[in-house]
């Protein structure tokens, strides 16, 4: 019996970058692919459900994903992600500035024949 490995599990950080911002107890995090061709994979795999699950331990209550095909990029708005926000959180990171990298820790499955294409564009970004 042969096992065909047709995808490679990487982290979102390998194929995309992003930045977090805050307003009250709401965080927004952009997800921008290094290569435009990877945008459709992000649409399939970086879903509202997965991001809500990723932020569940922080008390997140809802996630809205906005699609920007022109850039291309995704913008996630995560409600109640900041433990009360800058007003009342006791988190060392009051604004959730580090959270873009928590999101970029998300595992993604990359077709083996696209790994090189999707990870290029790093460094010269």
């Amino acid at each position: 019996m042969t096992v065909v490995l047709d995808t490679l599990r990487l982290r979102l950080h390998d194929i995309a970058h992003g930045r977090s911002g805050d307003k009250g107890n709401r965080s927004n995090i952009s997800v921008i692919p290094y290569t435009e061709a990877a945008y459709s994979l992000l649409l399939e795999q970086v879903t509202e459900e997965r991001i809500l699950a990723l932020f569940a331990h922080k008390g997140a209550s809802a996630v809205t994903r906005y699609e920007l095909p022109n850039l291309p990029a995704l913008n996630f708005v995560i409600d109640d992600a900041l433990e009360g926000g800058v007003n009342s959180t006791l988190n060392l990171d009051l604004h959730g500035k580090t959270l873009s990298f928590m999101l970029l820790d998300l595992p993604v499955e990359i077709p083996l024949d696209r790994v090189q294409e999707f990870t290029q564009g790093r460094r010269q970004a």
Binding site: H17, G18, R19, S30, I32, N75, V77, A125
Partner: peptide, 14 residues
């Protein structure tokens, strides 16, 4: 890439 990150910074409904 630098410009896209800033465009979406603290942006909610685009």
């Amino acid at each position: 890439a630098t410009v896209k990150e800033q465009i979406l910074y603290e942006m909610h409904d685009p």
